[in-house]
Amino acid sequence: MNIPNLLTLARIAFIPLLVMVFYLPYNWSLLLAAGLFGLAALTDWLDGFLARRWNQSTPFGAFLDPVADKLMVVVALALLIERFDTPWLTLPALVIIGREIVISALREWMAEMGNRGLVAVSWIGKVKTTLQMIAILLLLGFAPGTPIAQLGVITLYVAAALTLWSMLQYLRAAWPHLSRGM
C-alpha cells in the first residue's frame, strides 16, 4: 500500500460523506458538498501524479483509480438529478453515466483482446473530465436557478458533448475488433 493508492481509497471513502453532507438541512451544506467533491477531484489528479513521479504505479491502483473516479462522479450526478429534478440536467447526466459504462466495458473487452492501448485515455477525455468536474462542483455548490448553477448546467452540456465525441472516437478505434465475426 502506497500513498497514491491510499489517496484513491480516500476518494472512495468520501462518497458516503458526500451523500451525508448533501442531505444536511443547512445552507452551508451545499458548499461543503462541493468542497468534498473538489477535494476528491484533487486526490484523483494527485494520486496519478505521485504514482508516476515516485514510480509507484501498481496493478491495484490501475484497477481502483478509474473505479473510484466513476463512483464519485456517478454518485454526484445521481444526487444532482434528484436536486434539480428536471430533464435539462438529467439528460446530460445520463449521457455521461451511460458513456462511462460503455467505455469501461469496452476497455475491459479490449484488454482481454490485448488491444487496451487502442482505447487509452485521450486529450479529449481529459478535457471532458475537467469540464465535468467543474460542472459538478458548480452544481453541488449552488442551488438550482442561481446564475452559477445555470453556468454549471451549461458546462455539464459541454462535458456531455465531449463525452459523446470521445466515446465515438473510442468506438471507432475499436470497431475493427468489435465487428469481427458479425
Rank of each mutant, 00 (worst) to 15 (best):
I12V: 15
D47Q: 10
A34D: 02
E82D: 08
M20S: 10
R53A: 13
K70E: 02
L39A: 14
Y26R: 10
A33K: 09
G35V: 11
P59Y: 12
I12C: 02
A76E: 04
G98E: 13
A41V: 15
W88M: 11
L36M: 08
L50F: 08
P66F: 08
I15S: 12
L94A: 04
L7T: 03
L9Q: 04
V74I: 14
D47K: 07
I81G: 01
Y26I: 06
L36W: 05
L91K: 07
V75T: 14
V75N: 13
I15Q: 12
A41L: 14
I101W: 06
P59T: 15
A78F: 03
E100I: 00
I103V: 15
L24T: 13
A51M: 09
T43N: 07
L80T: 01
A10C: 09
T8N: 02
W88K: 10
V75H: 12
E100W: 00
W28D: 12
D65K: 03
V95Q: 05
W45E: 07
E82C: 00
L79W: 06
L94P: 03
F14W: 04
D44H: 06
L17M: 11
A10H: 04
F63H: 08
F49G: 02
L30E: 12
D69C: 11
A105Q: 04
L9S: 07
E100N: 04
L71R: 04
L24D: 10
G48L: 10
P16C: 03
A10T: 15
P92H: 01
P92M: 01
W28N: 05
D65E: 10
I81M: 15
E82R: 05
I15F: 09
F14T: 00
S104R: 03
L7A: 02
L31T: 11
M20N: 08
A78N: 01
S29F: 14
L18R: 09
A93V: 03
L32E: 09
L80I: 06
P16I: 04
A51F: 07
Y26W: 13
D69F: 12
M20K: 09
V73K: 01
P87D: 09
V74C: 08
P87S: 08
T86C: 03
P92G: 01
G38L: 13
A93H: 03
I103R: 02
M20A: 13
L50R: 07
R11V: 05
L46S: 09
I15W: 06
N27I: 09
G98I: 09
L71T: 10
L77E: 00
I81D: 02
L89E: 00
Q56S: 12
I12Q: 02
L18M: 11
R52D: 06
G48R: 10
